[in-house]
């Protein structure tokens, strides 16, 4: 995909730009935040936005802008790492299932069923209890949930392609199953995986928020958008901005990701469809 085609899809451009903006905001927190987020000063708490604290301060006197920057990074990291787990394990599983078929397919799909059948929140609670709550725990719990999703996408895509001529040709040319999967199937289902990836990323960010909200995700002194929501929840009627800001940030990030995902699908799909029709 080249850049000119990006301009043919204004929503894709918009979604990508917004996602990128948030990602950069988060990444920037690694180098610089207006105030250190572990810096607690009770005397400065609940300040309204002004020149020194652009978004005000929270219940511990921490700068809200700094927290949102750091929280955005955590949310992205958790979501992305969970997608990486899903893609890393799910896609090979789906491909193997589709290429080998028969008992292999059966076993792979049962493993995927198993991973799916475990309610992710309960997995998260159990992991949190075992290794202590934290971002890692959220990553694992959401990642496990992502595995069957990507396995099904990869398997479905591979099955749809396997009946097509060029795969048959590759088979006739004597290529092994692994090679076909790697060279011919994977590149062609990449768009499906990328699209699913953006969806799972946005779901992961929402899931992280939910887990942190019930106290199983990110733990202080680190922060995430979900943890900020949790901290601010009981103060909603007194200091609404403390919940509205992180809530809004979550909504905007997820919308940006979804728009980008939809745009990607629109931009990438025709190619896939043409091949299907060929």
């Amino acid at each position: 995909m080249n850049w000119r085609r990006l301009l043919d899809h204004p929503s894709l451009a918009l979604g990508l730009a917004a996602t990128l903006a948030f990602a950069l905001l988060g990444l920037a927190s690694l180098i610089w935040t207006p105030y250190p987020i572990a810096d607690i000063a009770i005397s400065r708490r609940f300040l309204v936005p002004d020149a020194s604290h652009l978004l005000g301060t929270d219940h511990l006197g921490r700068d809200m802008l700094s927290l949102i920057m750091a929280g955005t990074l955590t949310s992205f990291t958790v979501g992305a790492a969970a997608v990486a787990i899903g893609v890393g394990i799910g896609v090979p599983m789906g491909l193997v299932a589709a290429m080998w078929g028969g008992p292999v397919d059966w076993v792979a799909m049962r493993i995927s069923d198993l991973a799916f059948a475990f309610p992710s929140v309960i997995i998260a609670i159990l992991i949190a209890t075992l290794i202590g709550p934290g971002a890692t725990n959220a990553i694992i719990a959401i990642g496990i949930f992502n595995i069957p999703v990507f396995a099904r996408v990869a398997r479905g895509g591979a099955l749809a392609l396997s009946s097509l001529d060029f795969i048959g040709a590759a088979r006739l040319a004597g290529l092994g199953k692994a090679a076909i999967a790697w060279r011919h199937i994977l590149p062609n289902i990449m768009s499906l995986i990328i699209v699913q990836g953006t969806i799972q990323l946005s779901l992961g960010i929402l899931a992280e928020a939910g887990l942190s909200y019930i106290g199983l995700g990110t733990q202080p002194p680190a922060t995430s958008l979900g943890l900020m929501l949790r901290d601010a929840q009981s103060l909603f009627l007194i200091h609404p901005s403390l919940s509205l800001l992180p809530g809004l940030a979550i909504v905007l990030i997820v919308v940006a990701l979804n728009i980008a995902g939809d745009g990607l699908r629109d931009a990438l799909d025709p190619r896939l469809r043409r091949q299907e029709l060929a």
Binding site: A38, D39, I40, I42, L60, G215, P220, P221
Partner: peptide
């Protein structure tokens, strides 16, 4: 898991 402990902990750590 009680609010007074979690909050006091954060403040003491910072101090």
């Amino acid at each position: 898991p009680v609010a007074y402990a979690r909050l006091s902990g954060q403040i003491i750590a910072s101090e």
